[in-house]
Simulated scan of single mutants.
Amino acid sequence: MLRLRCAYQVNISLQSRIAVLDIADPKYDYALAAGHAVPEDRPCDAQDFNGVSERVDIIRFPPNYRAGEKSDWAVIRFPRIDNPNLVRYRLEPLADLENLEGVEVRFAKALGLSENSQKCRLTLLRFSETDQKVAHDCRGVPGQSGSPVTRIVGGEHRLVGINVGRIWMFESPQTGRPDRKGYINLFDQRIIEDIGDLIAEIQGSET
């Protein structure tokens, strides 16, 4: 996981997180960001936690991009960061599991360490038949949009989604009381294919 800083206004920047993908490209890194955290027309930098910084040179949104919805993600590219401790994730279509309720996932500590050492569980918030969100009980803070949500498969962390934000509810469908939950975009097979298509489009534009 890396930090993403994007210019917003004079002397003000947007800070979020990005999940770097395991792509066999010797020159560039490709990462997933929360779409709402990446202003398309302003410069962004990917930074590791040792101060190494690279300028994002390409941003691609899914065709149906919409902030706060399942399509709230973007593929970004920047010169490859040579850090032996940087985890590059493979995608895992967790949404193909029959039952998401109670599935254990990993998430970064709230104060910004890059390792996914926080254990938490998923739950499905159903507000209506057509309005439902996958939530988690991880402890998060502002600036963690785009943080990788992972599941350990075969001894390694696989990327199953990214953190999008927090839901403030006057009446939780679980408790009937005011509550706050983090929510994520889970990657089903269709989203994984869309991600692959955007990466292939970027790579194809270089030839």
Rank of each mutant, 00 (worst) to 15 (best):
residue 100 L to Q: 11
residue 131 D to Q: 14
residue 175 T to M: 02
residue 192 I to R: 06
residue 133 K to G: 05
residue 96 D to K: 13
residue 22 D to S: 08
residue 8 Y to I: 01
residue 83 N to I: 11
residue 203 Q to A: 01
residue 48 D to E: 07
residue 18 I to M: 08
residue 110 A to T: 02
residue 79 P to R: 08
residue 31 A to N: 14
residue 74 A to G: 05
residue 22 D to P: 10
residue 169 M to K: 10
residue 114 S to F: 13
residue 105 V to P: 09
residue 44 C to Q: 07
residue 170 F to D: 00
residue 104 E to Q: 05
residue 43 P to E: 10
residue 166 R to I: 15
residue 194 D to K: 10
residue 162 I to G: 11
residue 82 D to W: 03
residue 115 E to C: 10
residue 24 A to N: 15
residue 41 D to L: 13
residue 126 R to K: 15
residue 102 G to E: 13
residue 24 A to P: 15
residue 31 A to F: 04
residue 154 G to D: 12
residue 45 D to N: 04
residue 63 P to A: 04
residue 203 Q to S: 02
residue 10 V to S: 14
residue 178 P to R: 01
residue 51 G to I: 15
residue 88 R to K: 08
residue 150 T to D: 06
residue 110 A to K: 09
residue 123 T to D: 11
residue 86 L to K: 06
residue 79 P to H: 02
residue 175 T to H: 06
residue 154 G to K: 15
residue 37 A to L: 01
residue 32 L to N: 15
residue 113 L to N: 06
residue 83 N to F: 01
residue 135 A to W: 04
residue 157 H to I: 10
residue 123 T to Q: 11
residue 66 R to P: 00
residue 97 L to W: 09
residue 88 R to E: 12
residue 20 V to F: 00
residue 181 K to T: 12
residue 164 V to W: 00
residue 100 L to P: 02
residue 46 A to L: 03
residue 97 L to A: 14
residue 175 T to D: 12
residue 36 H to Q: 15
residue 138 C to Y: 00
residue 98 E to L: 15
residue 20 V to R: 10
residue 29 D to P: 03
residue 116 N to Y: 07
residue 151 R to A: 09
residue 122 L to K: 04
residue 48 D to F: 13
residue 24 A to V: 11
residue 39 P to L: 06
residue 152 I to W: 08
residue 57 D to H: 07
residue 117 S to F: 14
residue 174 Q to V: 12
residue 24 A to K: 06
residue 105 V to H: 01
residue 37 A to S: 12
residue 50 N to D: 04
residue 133 K to H: 05
residue 28 Y to I: 00
residue 73 W to Q: 07
residue 138 C to I: 04
residue 111 L to M: 03
residue 152 I to L: 10
residue 199 I to Q: 04
residue 174 Q to W: 07
residue 66 R to W: 09
residue 49 F to C: 02
residue 98 E to Q: 10
residue 65 Y to I: 13
residue 46 A to M: 09
residue 74 A to E: 14
